[in-house]
Amino acid sequence: MKRLLLKSIPALALIISGILSAQDIADKKENDTLFFDDFSASSLDREKWNVVGTDFWVNNEQQVYVDSTATIFPVKGAKAKGVENALILKAHYSPNYINYRDNDFDFISGRINTRDKVMFTYGTAMARMKLPEGSGFWPAFWALGGGEWPDTGEIDIMEYVGETDWIGVAMHGPNYSGETPLVNKYFFPEGEDVTDWHVYSVEWTAEELNFKVDDRLIYRVTKPMVEHYGEWAFDNPKYLILNLALGGAYPYKTNGIDKPYNGLPESTVKLIKEGKAEVLIDWVLITK
């Protein structure tokens, strides 16, 4: 079983940088750890995670989420693609799977969250992830407040819409939601892209949030920056979300593709049919 070393700053730096994968880490330090899952169990731990079902749909996404071992499942060995074990969120082509809110859905996928199971205010949230290549894939690692959106805030730790050389980070709240001004893109150094294993994280305090990729600071948002636009919505408990969406508003805004699906080109539909629509998660960690 993968364990987590948090006993020293150098060790934590190695973890975040991705030099160490989770299976190499030992001696987990419980007093600093609010939450940790290395997905080494034979199934998703329902004491830690909720699974979203078909009664949820936003952003003109082209999939519905289903609670199924077809869309959310742990893997080991070669299927974990370079780590000991991982969780996979997988999308499938499933024509005419469901009609929901007058829309026909041809794709299913996975979305999990920690709402009411693991809520946290301040600290560092991070996940080590490997993302798929394909325009219109829209995986995300993010946090929401437990109340009404956007009043209780949103922290987008990582969003990817299918251009492999960059990911986005953002914050949403009252008067700075949707097309938020608090947003930034991170472009990977030459020789790296989203299909490699990377650690995506945010360090959240009462005064600022620092977004990082592999311990590289990529964006800092301070309380005065937020309050220039609206109320600071980041003193309340948040829960984590991991999901793989397909197409929809943000991919469409980036690629301009509307056929065969909004934000989702035929080339990516082919990848989904070939079983290549997978997000792998090595581990998720929240520390004080």
Rank of each mutant, 00 (worst) to 15 (best):
G168C: 00
T164L: 11
D214Y: 02
D196S: 04
W138D: 13
G53C: 06
I286G: 03
P150I: 03
K212T: 07
V75N: 09
E192A: 15
I272Q: 10
Y93M: 02
V83T: 11
L271Y: 12
G256D: 08
T121S: 00
D196T: 07
L12I: 03
F187W: 10
F107L: 08
A11F: 04
N31E: 04
L264R: 04
Y97W: 07
D193K: 01
K81C: 12
P237R: 02
P95C: 09
I281V: 14
G136Q: 11
W49S: 00
G82A: 06
D116Q: 10
P251D: 00
W138I: 05
N255Q: 05
N96K: 02
D193H: 11
L209H: 01
A22P: 00
P132M: 01
I9H: 00
F35S: 03
Y239D: 07
Y100S: 02
D282I: 08
G153S: 11
A277K: 01
F141Y: 08
D282M: 02
H172L: 00
K253M: 13
T254Q: 10
W204I: 11
F105Q: 13
N255T: 14
N236L: 09
A22H: 05
K253W: 09
R101L: 15
F56M: 01
K259P: 12
L4M: 15
I155E: 12
K223H: 08
P150T: 12
P150A: 08
W197L: 12
P224E: 02
D151M: 11
F56T: 10
W142G: 12
S21R: 09
I241H: 04
P174N: 15
D67H: 13
E203F: 01
L285W: 04
A140K: 04
N236Q: 07
E208P: 09
L44K: 07
